[in-house]
Simulated assay, not measured.
Amino acid sequence: MDNIPVWHLVIISLITCCVIMGLVWLWAHKIKNAGVVDIFWSYNFPVIAIILLLLAPGFGTRKTMICAMVIIAGFRLGTHLAIRIVSHIKEEEGRYQQLRKEWAPNAERRFFFFFQFQGISNVLLAIPFFVSAVNPAPGLSPFEYAGFALWFISVTGETIADRQLAAFKKDPVNKGKVCDTGLWHYSRHPNYFFEWLMWVSYFVFALGSPYGYLAVISPAIILYLLLKVTGIPATEAQSLRSKGEAFKKYQASTSVFVPWFKKG
């Protein structure tokens, strides 16, 4: 296994992620809730990390370090999403209800390809993991220490943001209100900000390996998706549909992304 080519690792990871997403699509089709894709999109990164931990030929300490980072972060986010989604498993989230309406009458078929694309995106975004895990050079570089420190900050920040939102929603007094406490007082999406920062940390970590600069693709794609595609636009559109004027006032007073800047 010491000489396994990186492209073999990519193919193994791609097949595994796509098979998982195919099975998840079958489940989603049965329960009529496409939102479960978010859970397994997060869990697929630890799956890739385990594959690399077992098969990649890189320096043991570096490989263990990057894989542990990915497993911890992916499992935390996936479990957080699972708790939230499973709690209302019979009610599909508004974002996916909207897609179901837009894609009718071929929604299920289009969801299948959507799920497969999510599996492919897992592998594309995993570039920093592949780059780091196949590097055989002994010892760790300053980039890898810096990447780990930034990762710790980002995971901690995202965990705090998620817990603050969950606590707000759990209180029945807040039903129908907009969460504007804690980090959410400054940013409408602190969880997304720290998620992006985590991908920046993986890029910084990868700079300690040959061709590490290629890993910039990952935070760049995540930033684009969050700001322009499936992240903030879809989430805010749903919030406007469900909370109306209250969310418009919240939009006017907060930063869209960065959690330490508040308007006014």
Results as ranks from 00 to 15, higher is better:
50 I>C: 12
24 V>W: 02
37 V>W: 00
88 H>M: 11
58 G>V: 01
41 W>K: 10
31 I>P: 06
34 A>W: 02
53 L>G: 01
37 V>F: 13
64 T>G: 14
43 Y>P: 07
66 I>L: 12
49 A>M: 08
30 K>L: 15
78 G>Q: 00
13 S>Q: 07
19 V>I: 14
34 A>M: 15
44 N>V: 07
58 G>H: 02
78 G>R: 04
57 P>M: 14
43 Y>L: 15
66 I>W: 13
66 I>Q: 01
17 C>Q: 05
8 H>R: 01
61 T>S: 13
9 L>D: 08
20 I>L: 09
40 F>H: 10
36 V>L: 06
35 G>V: 12
42 S>Y: 03
8 H>V: 01
66 I>D: 02
74 G>N: 12
65 M>T: 08
56 A>N: 08
73 A>R: 03
10 V>M: 02
25 W>N: 04
41 W>L: 00
26 L>G: 14
22 G>C: 11
87 S>C: 10
89 I>T: 07
64 T>K: 00
36 V>I: 15
53 L>R: 02
56 A>V: 03
32 K>T: 07
39 I>K: 05
60 G>R: 04
71 I>A: 07
78 G>S: 02
78 G>M: 00
27 W>E: 04
28 A>W: 01
62 R>D: 04
9 L>R: 05
86 V>L: 15
54 L>Q: 05
23 L>W: 07
73 A>E: 09
56 A>K: 07
32 K>P: 04
63 K>T: 05
32 K>G: 10
28 A>Q: 13
24 V>L: 04
37 V>D: 08
58 G>S: 09
87 S>F: 10
27 W>H: 13
75 F>L: 13
23 L>Q: 12
28 A>V: 14
80 H>S: 03
69 M>N: 02
5 P>N: 12
71 I>Y: 00
46 P>V: 11
74 G>V: 13
7 W>T: 06
78 G>C: 06
79 T>K: 05
57 P>C: 06
57 P>T: 01
55 L>E: 06
40 F>C: 04
30 K>V: 11
87 S>W: 06
44 N>H: 11
85 I>Q: 06
7 W>N: 11
17 C>G: 03
4 I>L: 14
44 N>L: 12
26 L>P: 10
23 L>I: 08
85 I>M: 14
64 T>N: 15
72 I>Y: 08
19 V>A: 02
40 F>D: 06
75 F>I: 04
23 L>M: 08
6 V>W: 09
10 V>E: 01
32 K>V: 13
32 K>F: 15
72 I>P: 01
50 I>P: 03
13 S>Y: 10
12 I>G: 00
68 A>Q: 07
80 H>V: 08
69 M>T: 03
47 V>M: 07
77 L>N: 02
50 I>V: 15
65 M>H: 04
78 G>V: 06
21 M>G: 05
34 A>E: 09
8 H>T: 14
12 I>A: 05
16 T>N: 07
31 I>R: 10
18 C>T: 10
